[in-house]
Design a protein around this nucleic acid. Sequence first.
DNA 1: CCCCAGTCCTGCGGGC
DNA 2: TGCCCGCAGGACTGGG
Length: 288
Amino acid sequence: MPELPEVETMRRGVQAIVGSRIVDVRRPKCAKRPILVAPRIDSLCRRTCGCTITAVDRIGKRVVVRLDSGDALVFEPRMTGLVLLAAPPTPEHLRLQVKLAGGDIDELLFWDRRGLGSVRLVSPSEFAVRYGSGDIGPDALMVTADELRARLKHSRRAIKVALLDQKALAGIGNLYASEMLHVAGIHPAKPCDQLRPAQWRKLHAAMHEVLEMAIRYEGSTLGDGTYRNALNQQGSYQNHHRVYNRAGDVCPGCGKATIERIVQTQRSTFFCPRCQRAPQQRRRSPSS
DNA sequence: CCCCAGTCCTGCGGGC
DNA sequence: TGCCCGCAGGACTGGG
């Protein structure tokens, strides 16, 4: 499932399209159910054809292709979407083809097995509304330790649940939330308002350590093999996971306890009960 | 405002 | 062997 490291790997992998011109945009007919493409394909094609790609950015878990018209094509992979330059894993789940000219790359593809992803063409004003700082928090790799703490310290939510909130912080998903909390030695159920300043600093450092390492290994390709880089190659950070999907394994941190799985807001969380101590119960007023 | 449950979707693996 | 059910978790919606 593409989170920040996977989407950043996609972004880097398609940089070669910068400078090329869009000459056609098509939806292959082979896709069973169409993903959301907005506006409708004919209108999208009309507005993008002839435009030159000026940059490829990332905002949270989305790939943003900037055009010289001022519009942006925003690719949102969600669970199984891929932004590709190479042949996709299967032909039947190819969702969008962007034909290019004027450079080395002939086409940019969006492939999505489950079809929860989307592609949107947005004007600058639409972009500000949809992806502005009110609706999406600072990038997890850009936020400072002080801002991280300031944005979450008053919340009573469990820290792991809060890390998934894209309005608070952009880019972290279920996998990397567990990983960075293990590195930081913080229990996933710890309420944000119980973390001490030193723990926020540890979490901030762990966030950088985990996300930067995962980018270096081009993301995590899990058991279903879905996630691929722009050239349809697997990532390898899954070989370095400390806790995710490792319930029952010996903790790589302490070498003694075994990794446990719990469910928080209907999602799996993995942690070491020895390295990540359970939070203290919230006290009622002391009885004297 | 804050927070959570329910929803979409497909493929896979377990149980029988 | 085939069928069915549960599970995986991105972002969004509705409601307490």
